[in-house]
Each structure stands twice: as structure tokens, then as C-alpha cells.
Design a protein around this nucleic acid. Sequence first.
DNA 1: CCGCCGCTGAACTGAACGGTCTATGTTTAG
DNA 2: CTAAACATAGACCGTTCAGTTCAGCGGCGG
Lengths: 203, 203
Amino acid sequence: MATATVLKKGRKFDQVLEGARTVFMRDGFEGASVDDITREAGVSKATLYSYFPDKRLLFLEVARAECARQADAAIQTIDMTAAPREALTAAARRITSFITSDFGQRVYRICVAECDRFPDVGRAFYQSGPLVVRQRLADYLTAATARGQLAVDDIPLAADQFAELCKANLQARTLFGATPCAPAEVERTIVGAVDMFLARYAV
Amino acid sequence: MATATVLKKGRKFDQVLEGARTVFMRDGFEGASVDDITREAGVSKATLYSYFPDKRLLFLEVARAECARQADAAIQTIDMTAAPREALTAAARRITSFITSDFGQRVYRICVAECDRFPDVGRAFYQSGPLVVRQRLADYLTAATARGQLAVDDIPLAADQFAELCKANLQARTLFGATPCAPAEVERTIVGAVDMFLARYAV
DNA sequence: CCGCCGCTGAACTGAACGGTCTATGTTTAG
DNA sequence: CTAAACATAGACCGTTCAGTTCAGCGGCGG
């Protein structure tokens, strides 16, 4: 990759990136100081600045890597041939577990906070997260509809609706720290999402 | 109110709060400088610090006021006696218009970003926003179910589901600035939400 | 007319932070 | 073995910013 070649110059490159990841994820962009990052990475400031021209670019690189990681996690495909209830339940479980995970929450929080300052980060997150999920779901819905297992007229809308149903209450709760989400509640949300979706789109 | 009495001392109090509101909403907590706020409020720094011991407390006060304002807006009640389709459509229109509004988006963004540093802000937002909507919806669903117009078993879940369906794609899109949301799309989301909800819970 | 009180505006402090510079290893080529 | 080239640590610099201080101003009650 051209950009990576431009950046990567020494053996401590990954160390810097890893330290930056830790600190940025913990403290956000403004909250993280470059000194913290060097300490965390076990690297000197000059070393850091030899790899990245400034803090902003370092953050963008970390964000890009996180988005890619998220895309990888999301791409674990839905079983395209499974019956609707099974396929949707499995998908819902994946989505809810990401949303309630510490990692998912931190990424979301930072992207929401910083995509004002860094529009690229917001777009990258959206495209490598929600959009991937939406596309996967849409693919499945298309296949299932073709097979006559579902009757979906507006596929993109249905995909969005299902993804959103999986979040019901869970995302807000974890994000604003009102009360922790019990596993039973997650399960209830999943079943509720699948039931509602099938009530609307089953043949 | 006891706390207000402790704080309020002079005629420029509201001026300070208003200026702080403007700047915090525009720039967030870290992004806002106290000097900016005094300039915006047309007030000296000493005056500001005579009302609020520090920036953090000032922010909390602004956030509390914003949450209250949001609660007021949300409280405009659903017509409890209307038929499901009309009542739900009206509710959906209120919810979507708040979500896609500049104001709603800013409040949400700031709360998500800062509720790590200020857990109180997160909780206040949740309780005076999503929770109020949820309660209103639950009240309506209870009434409509009693009237035999709907058949909802798990009322809190159904309320969350409906609120969430209204966000489908709209919130993520506006938040991450991928592409603006056309009014037609909002309408499509509203109709989709109501259709799906009724498919699941109509008698 | 006096004294009080809220307010002003500007100067100041101390700390934090992004970014740079220099002195000191460390590696590699000849 | 030596010297050039590069990597590194961390002191250092300039700036920004929260919060303080203080001398003075204007209006209002007594």
C-alpha cells in the first residue's frame, strides 16, 4: 500500500500505533496527550513525530485501523441459506453483542464525538460499520425473498428496520450509563426484534 | 429551589447561562473557551466566575437546562384517545423531526461525547429524553390495549421498539454526515415504522 | 451625598500541551 | 576500526487556557 510505505519507516511503528490506539480509545482525541501516548507506547516523542507529522494524522490512522477492524468483525457472514428465523436471530445476536460490548461502545462514542472535527472519521465509521451490516442484511433478505421465504418490498428499509430493532433500548442504556443491561434483557430484545420483523415480512 | 438560590446572585445570571449555552452547543465542552463564553454573553470573566465556581459546573448547569427543555418538548402529549395509526404516525413524526433537527443532533452528540467525563449529564439526558418518550408511548399502548385496539403483551419492549423504528437509518445518517436525509425518506421511515408496528401488534 | 454592591476589563499565574531541537546512542558500509 | 547515517530520549519552547486579582465605575437605597 502506497500510504503505508510513506509512513512506515522503523521497527517501532506498530508500537506507536498500538499505544495511540489504547490512549485514544480511553481518552478521546482532545483528552489524549501526545506524552501519554509516547509513555504508553514506550517510545520517545521524536520517534512518534518521525512516523506521524502531527497528532491529527496519528488519530486518523488509528481511527482508520479501528474502522477496518470493525468491518472485519462485521463481515462474518450471515448464513444465506438458513431459514429466516434462524438467520435473523443469529444476526441479531451479533449486532447486540457488538453494541453492548465495551469496544463497540467506545468506538461509537469517539466517532460521534469527533466526526464534527473529523468528517472523514464519521464517514469511514458509517461505511465500515452500519453500512456493511445493512448490505449483508439486504443480501440475505433479497435471497430469502427470492426463495419465497419472506415478502419484503422495500429491502433497504427492511434491513435498516431490523438493525434498528436490535438496538432497542440497549444502545441508549449502555451509552448513557443509566443501568447495565442484563443478558436476559438482551435476549428479550433479540426475540422481540425477530418476532416483529417476521410479523411484518413473513409470507 | 435551593440550588438555584445558592447560585443566582445578580442580574446577568441568565445572560451568562445563555452565552454558555450557545458556545457549548456549538463547540462542545473542551472546544469552548471561557473567554469565548464571556464574549458571547457580553459579560466579564469575573462576573462569570462569581456565578459559577468553574467551567465544569457551568457546563453541568447548561446541560441540565437543555435536558429540561428537551423534556418539555417531548411532553407534548400523544392524543391518548386517537386510533393507533393516527396516534403512532403523529408520534413518529415528532420523534423523527427531533432526531433530524440540528438541535436534537447537537444535544445528542454532546451527551454521547461528554457522558464519560460527566456521568450525570448522560443520565439526565437519558431520563429526560428517551425515557420520557418511552413512558408516553407506554401510556398510550396501555390505553389502546385496554380499549382492544392493540394487542401488546410486553408494553415497555413495544414502546422501545417503536421509538427505535423511527430512527431507522435517519439517526446514523445525520450523525455521521454520510448523506443528508430527504423529507421523502423521513416519510418513508415513518410509514414503515407504523406499518411494521401494526403488523405485529394490531388486533 | 455617601457607601454599598454588582459589574468591568485587563493583567497575571500556573499548568498543560503540541511540536522542535540537541545531545547521545546504535547500526551499517567501507 | 571508523565514519557517516539514522534512531532515540527528553529537555525545551511558544502558546493556549482555566481561574485569580484588583483598581475602578455606575446605579441605588438611606
